[in-house]
């Protein structure tokens, strides 16, 4: 857990909490084994998952219990489902990266849809889930569960809003441009997320993306996430849609030459920047300037002997494999 220091000694209070928890946990498991779906058993299991949200088995128990309520009055189901959602929120605050909890929450949402339980919320269910993701990402911008949850919920809700994802990734990148997840989800959603029709607009988008990357490279040339995204752009920003892979941008040699020039400018300032040099190799090869690429690889082996093998391999492969 973040920012919480555990003392070197466990207090007697903590010890008794733990021992009573393990005792409770044992009893909760018995309920699962015996398929005891009574109110008492359910309350007991609830108490245990609240403190120990990693426990798969007990979430399974809860699903069995929830399914056993099928056919009950709609009002009762709404209440139970909302309580269960709150339980997962509590559990996530305790342990933001518990797979089992995230999965349980998605199951709840999907099941609510199947069972036609109307979980009326003020902002709408989809918005509520996005708010949860935002909150979890605010606590930890790299919590990939939250990113993934957004996707899954979108599917369940039948809402495909790549534009919002793109906009959101921009905020996250502004807050921390080393956030790999943010760049990744940006690349996944960019093609659909930005309604581009004409070539001018596409050119402008490419310029903006490259400019943003340049700010990142110059602020911190060692931050790899931005370089990965850049490589993806230089490949024309390929994306998969309707069974085939297409490229968003048509990358011309002229563009690559400009990028090579910009890359060289950074190398002039930071002659030992590994990522800049690696990118230079790639750009040179794309432009068919193999000899210069070889020279750059030699330079890389000098400044980064730890990865000698990788660079040798790089030198022996063809352009496309860089």
């Amino acid at each position: 857990m973040h920012g919480i220091m555990y003392g070197t000694e466990t207090s007697s209070e903590e010890l008794s909490r733990l021992s009573s928890l393990s005792e409770l946990g044992r009893r909760a498991l018995e309920c699962k084994v015996e398929a005891d779906l009574s109110d008492e058993a359910e309350a007991l299991v609830r108490k245990v998952v609240e403190s120990n949200p990693d426990d798969y088995t007990l979430w399974n128990y809860r699903r069995e219990w929830l399914l056993s309520l099928k056919g009950e009055a709609h009002d009762r189901l709404v209440k139970v489902w909302n309580d269960e959602l709150r339980l997962t929120e509590k559990a996530l605050l305790r342990h933001p990266k518990a797979y089992a909890t995230w999965q349980h929450r998605v199951w709840l949402l999907a099941e609510a849809k199947d069972m036609e339980i109307d979980l009326a919320t003020r902002t709408g269910l989809f918005e509520k889930e996005l708010a949860l993701c935002s909150k979890m990402l605010k606590m930890d911008a790299r919590n990939f569960h939250a990113w993934a949850h957004w996707e899954r919920v979108s599917k369940i809700a039948g809402k495909h809003e790549p534009a919002r994802v793109v906009e959101y990734t921009e905020q996250q990148i502004n807050a921390d441009f080393s956030n790999y997840s943010a760049w990744h989800y940006r690349s996944v959603n960019l093609a659909e997320g930005i309604p581009i029709q004409d070539k001018t607009a596409l050119d402008q988008l490419l310029d903006e993306e490259v400019d943003r990357l340049r700010q990142a490279f110059y602020t911190d040339p060692d931050s790899q996430s931005a370089w990965f995204y850049y490589r993806w752009l230089l490949n024309g920003a390929p994306y998969y849609s309707e069974g085939k892979t297409s490229a968003l941008f048509n990358i011309k040699d002229e563009f690559l030459k400009n990028e090579l020039k910009a890359c060289q400018e950074l190398i002039d300032l930071e002659p030992f920047s590994k990522w800049a040099l690696l990118t230079k190799v790639y750009l040179l090869r794309r432009l068919g300037r193999e000899a210069e690429a070889e020279d750059t690889i030699v330079k890389l082996t000098e400044i980064d002997p730890m990865r000698l093998g990788y660079y040798r391999n790089l030198a022996s492969t063809s352009t496309r494999a860089v």
């Binding site: 340049r214 700010q215 110059y218 602020t219 911190d220 400018e265």
Partner: peptide
């Protein structure tokens, strides 16, 4: 901060590098 330098329109990319370095 690092993220504000990244977003800043006040200083150019090369200036960012010099400042950060």
């Amino acid at each position: 901060s690092r993220s504000e330098v990244f977003q800043s329109r006040l200083i150019s990319a090369p200036e960012k590098r010099l400042l950060m370095r």
